[in-house]
Design a protein around this nucleic acid. Structure first.
Lengths: 195, 195
DNA sequence: TGATTAATAGGACATATGGCCTATTGTTTA
DNA sequence: TAAACAATAGGCCATATGTCCTATTAATCA
């Protein structure tokens, strides 16, 4: 946190502000103030706002990749790895309640802006999708792996959207519990796909 | 479309633009151009951008209310009414693929802007929630009515988010089908709640 | 018809913002 | 130490935008 370069500090601050305020609504001045840097110094590190966005998305992709790798290294069993994904909602519940899902809301915003970085942001979702698919596949759900992955993604996006819209912690907790139960039921009832 | 007042035209154009481009990213000039009106004339009808937003949200709430009333009048059976809700995703699939859910994305944006109209926008979701709850309740699911309503809302929000993020029509169609199957299964297996 | 009001157009203005330049300071290196 | 480079500060500029004012035109009504 302290020993990072200015460039890294800018990216981190932008990452947070883009999440909290949205990309459009975050100005150079906002980021500069957060990093305690003059606005002029900005241009030395980033030539445009789009470059900052690009760096932020890169960081998020990298962080997501690392997180998924960590789950793989720390947890050998795919079913427990899937549980880690669900528990991420619990871990980030405070932020989710206030700002929704960082990935989903960014994608939604960039789509409306018709921003070129749109496809880069989508890649973060694809990272999750592919990883989840691999876990389901390893659990024997070969043909349904992608559908199951999409189900988890769909659920988490819907949950994050409603949790923040209603600002309802009870709802969020309950949905996380239901997701865990769904996973339990799926994995205990049929280790090998039926159809 | 032709015989509407200028004020109504402004609200309609703003409604569409807020959906397509987002609230922040839509300027007075954008709306004025869409309605073919000078920017100065704007102030005669709306004193601020927030007033336009307020009017747009009012319109959406009113339209939602009318839609739900229509479903109630046209369809006597609650299970078919619930089907109407699901089929709304199908009916609006082109827009959903491009811009996501109008309600969900507006709520998400207003939350990040920390906009006072945030709670008004949320009311649209509440309209759906209450209506869905009543239908489930009428079908005998007294205790689970609200949870089932939230499940449908969660699903549709998640589906809209991913459908637009991935821009994947196949995904959207499949999720709609799964929702319909879920409803069928729920209503056929147990007309009266088990627990 | 004349007067009053409704509606519209066009522009003015302050502010915010992204983008950019230059001078200055700090650091490294030959 | 002197030179070269990295990093930073502060300000300038064009544009966009929300807000607001005034003059003009259209519509209504006594």
């Amino acid at each position: 946190m302290a020993a990072t370069s200015t460039r890294e500090k800018i990216i981190c601050a932008a990452d947070l502000l883009f999440y909290q305020q949205g990309f459009s609504h975050t100005s150079f001045a906002d980021i500069a103030k957060a990093v305690n840097i003059s606005r002029g110094n900005f241009y030395y590190h980033f030539k445009s706002k789009d470059q900052i966005l690009s760096a932020v998305i890169s960081l998020r992709r990298s962080n997501t990749h690392l997180l998924l790798k960590k789950w793989e290294l720390c947890t050998a069993q795919p079913n427990l790895r899937l549980l880690s994904f669900i528990q991420l909602l619990q871990l980030n519940q405070d932020n989710i309640l206030r700002y929704g899902c960082p990935v989903g809301t960014l994608c939604a915003e960039l789509i409306k802006l018709d921003h070129p970085a749109n496809s880069d942001a989508r890649m973060i979702l694809t990272l999750y999708r592919t990883w989840l698919r691999r876990q389901f596949s390893a659990l024997g759900h070969k043909t349904q792996a992608d559908n199951l992955a999409l189900h988890l993604l769909t659920q988490s996006q819907g949950i994050a959207t409603l949790a923040s819209a209603f600002n309802d912690r009870t709802y969020l907790s309950r949905q996380i519990l239901l997701l865990q139960q769904w996973l339990d039921k799926l994995l205990n009832q049929e280790t090998i796909p039926v159809s």
